[in-house]
Design a protein around this nucleic acid. Structure first.
Lengths: 236, 236
DNA sequence: GCAAAAGTGTTATCTCTACACCCATGG
DNA sequence: CCATGGGTGTAGAGATAACACTTTTGC
């Protein structure tokens, strides 16, 4: 079916948001993501990633954070550019290039996220049918999260400011979908130097109270592999 | 200095290109990259990354390959999206969002790349002053190449179709800027399963003729970490 | 005291690295 | 037969994984 080629390119910014949620109280947490219902054509009524057109005077990352806030009412603990999707046939009738970001929300805050008829949280690995290529995009973001957790210290972004080692391990287990040895996990984490004892303990447990830690990135060792975030020039 | 905000966003595609070149004949190769001289304002006359505006009916990756071909006259052996740079103040007076790709050229072909008054090859780690934020972009692309070489098998893309293990090691050494143990390198490479003997030997050496290999990706083992290239829908 | 999770110790195994050594070829 | 890089063997250091064991709390 030959369509008349679009005359312009429109630029959108979308965000894939991840947070941990327990299916049932006390059960192991899993990754969930919020979707919004489209209120315009094309694909009116379909579920889609939060996003919108890029205002000419707004930074890309700021636009991503804004759509995130308007969707969930929360600020992300982690936000990074994922990929730019620009296939000619992504959207019928017009050429849309989407710069997609991905974000992590802290656990305690995510519980009181905005809910409404046009926002819906779904498990990240069993998605409903989505608009455009958004299912592919979420799958890619999930892959990025899962691979990045293995070599980077981002898991803490899914927790609150302080957490126990067992809670941190639960995050890893939810993301990686496999059990980890508590003893070895503890040693690996402490050896990384990225954790700092708060001196406090989690109260209210039916057993020995665990220590609380906070994330405190180690002083960058010479020659260490820093993530190298591209330097974006912010508006003056 | 307050400037009047631009009313539209323009979308460009640029490409960082890497190839190996020996400084002197027989010497160890190093990474070089081609630049083009700008023939329009802004930044007229400055050296910049090859690129251009995105035509509404052209795929992003196709646009990157096209600018690469028009700059060097060659086809890339590797091409991947790097990052999208969209800072509000990247370009004076207008809002330009650049989807940047990075590419590798095979060694034998790179030798006969196009040269002209408006194309100039420079060593990738000692750049001249560049237009816009292009120096930052190349630095980021270099970082990506150097980190990706450590966990992925892309080094062969800087060589021809067949190569010796010593030649492959030279690529790694040029990219990583450090010497590698030939014995251990050999074993690691052969164990990866990505190399296949051709049965031929490199002739004309003043000593024992080395075996020639070709790149032949191993059958994907179950649970192996595939690179997961995002699925772009190609034009029908 | 008993259950349960926090936290520690120990050992087998695998991987990485350095380097000694033999092999094959041109001159 | 000699120089040179191709190619193999191997032992020590360090990281990883499995699991036994001790500690500390609530009930």
């Amino acid at each position: 079916m030959p369509t008349t080629p679009p005359s312009t390119v429109r630029l959108a910014v979308s965000t894939v948001i991840f947070a941990l949620r327990a299916d049932r109280a006390g059960g192991p947490p899993a990754l969930w993501t919020p979707l919004v219902r489209r209120t315009r054509e094309p694909q009116l009524g379909h579920w889609a990633l939060p996003g919108g057109w890029l205002p000419p005077n707004e930074e890309l990352e700021t636009a991503a954070a804004r759509t995130l806030r308007s969707t969930t009412g929360l600020a992300p603990s982690y936000l990074e550019q994922l990929y730019t999707f620009g296939g000619v046939d992504r959207s019928p009738g017009e050429r849309v290039v989407s710069v997609v970001y991905w974000a992590l929300l802290p656990n305690d805050e995510a519980a009181r996220a905005t809910i409404g008829p046009n926002v819906r949280w779904v498990p990240a690995d069993t998605l409903p049918e989505l608009a455009f290529d958004h299912a592919d995009i979420i799958a890619y973001a999930l892959w990025r999260l899962r691979t990045k957790v293995e070599y980077s210290e981002i898991a803490h972004a899914l927790l609150g400011r302080t957490f126990t080692l067992a809670e941190l391990r639960e995050v890893y287990e939810a993301v990686l979908r496999r059990q980890l040895d508590p003893a070895n996990f503890r040693r690996t984490m402490l050896a990384s130097g990225g954790l700092q004892e708060t001196g406090e303990h989690r109260a209210g447990t039916p057993h020995r109270p665990p220590k609380l830690y906070r994330y405190a990135p180690a002083a960058t060792a010479p020659g260490a592999r820093e993530p190298f975030r591209p330097t974006e020039r912010t508006a003056s």
